[in-house]
């Protein structure tokens, strides 16, 4: 599935020297990241490396302290979730922001319902939800009017991802979408991640699972103690190198300068 990519094309989302501190603790140190349309960028790093903080900064939940975020080449300021949504950035959270007591259609349109006057336009929402799921070749749902509480973990993940597609997001950030899923469900979600990129979305895929990462990703970005150790095409590294990047911050001639990786 993975195709080697040259550095060609311009990134849809680019971070330059992003800093973020919580009080006295600096979590992100001058992080650079490039995210390209049509490609899956895996964001890896050990617990506490700053992955969650980084995506929350991009999503506007924790606005950045320093550095720049460029969207489509233009510097943008993201100070809240609404800013990132308006740009076309959608985050699919690990703990799945779905309401159990609503059905699939209601969840996909939550907060952005279509209306006829004051009445909800159920017909057009149901059709659009159905079309989006069909476009992603999702065939595992029995009905789009099923309550989310009756869905399996993989199906929930699917709905959450389809929601991002429905809103024509340009960048979809997936926070550990395969954690806690079985083998078959992981398969479904990985296929969906690939299709997402193949339909032109820029995908950021956070995972601890190297098998998953190497299966779907085009690029890999490794965070080490709040610094970006590497942001390279996945074809240029092997699994051992990635693990070294995650655990030590450097591997051979890629990664952080020895001084940095040893001092911190």
């Amino acid at each position: 599935m993975t195709v080697p990519h040259a550095e060609g094309g311009s990134p849809i989302l680019e971070l330059r020297g992003v800093d973020k501190s919580f009080g006295a603790v600096q979590v992100l140190h001058g992080v650079d990241l490039k995210v390209y349309p049509g490609k899956v960028t895996a964001l890896v790093g050990d617990n506490g490396a700053g992955k969650s903080t980084l995506i929350k900064s991009i999503a506007g939940i924790h606005p950045i302290d320093g550095g720049q975020i460029l969207f489509d080449g233009q510097p943008v300021s993201i100070t809240g979730p609404r800013d990132s949504a308006a740009l076309g950035l959608e985050v699919v959270y690990q703990d799945l922001a779905l309401a159990d007591n609503l059905d699939v259609v209601q969840n996909m349109f939550l907060g952005r319902e279509r209306k006829h006057g004051i009445v909800l336009d159920e017909a057009s929402m149901e059709q659009a939800a159905r079309d989006t799921l069909a476009k992603l070749s999702v065939r595992t749902l029995k009905s789009v009017r099923q309550l989310v509480s009756s869905l399996s973990g993989g199906q929930r993940q699917t709905v959450a991802i389809a929601k991002a597609v429905l809103w024509e997001s340009k960048v979809v950030i997936l926070d550990e979408p395969t954690a806690a899923l079985g083998v078959a469900q992981t398969r479904q979600v990985l296929d969906l991640v690939r299709r997402l990129a193949d339909t032109g979305h820029a995908v950021v895929f956070i995972s601890h699972n190297m098998v998953d990462v190497f299966e779907v990703s085009d690029r890999i970005a490794a965070l080490y103690l709040g610094r970006m150790a590497a942001d390279v095409p996945i074809s240029t590294v092997d699994r051992g190198q990635v693990i070294e990047l995650i655990t030590a911050g450097r591997s051979g001639d890629i990664g952080l300068a020895p001084a940095v990786s040893e001092v911190v």
């Binding site: 979730p81 703990d95 922001a97 309401a99 007591n101 939550l110 907060g111």
Partner: peptide
Amino acid sequence: YAVGGNSEAARRAGI
């Protein structure tokens, strides 16, 4: 319904 079902999801959906 959304707030009652999952208020965090509702908040993230911009409600």
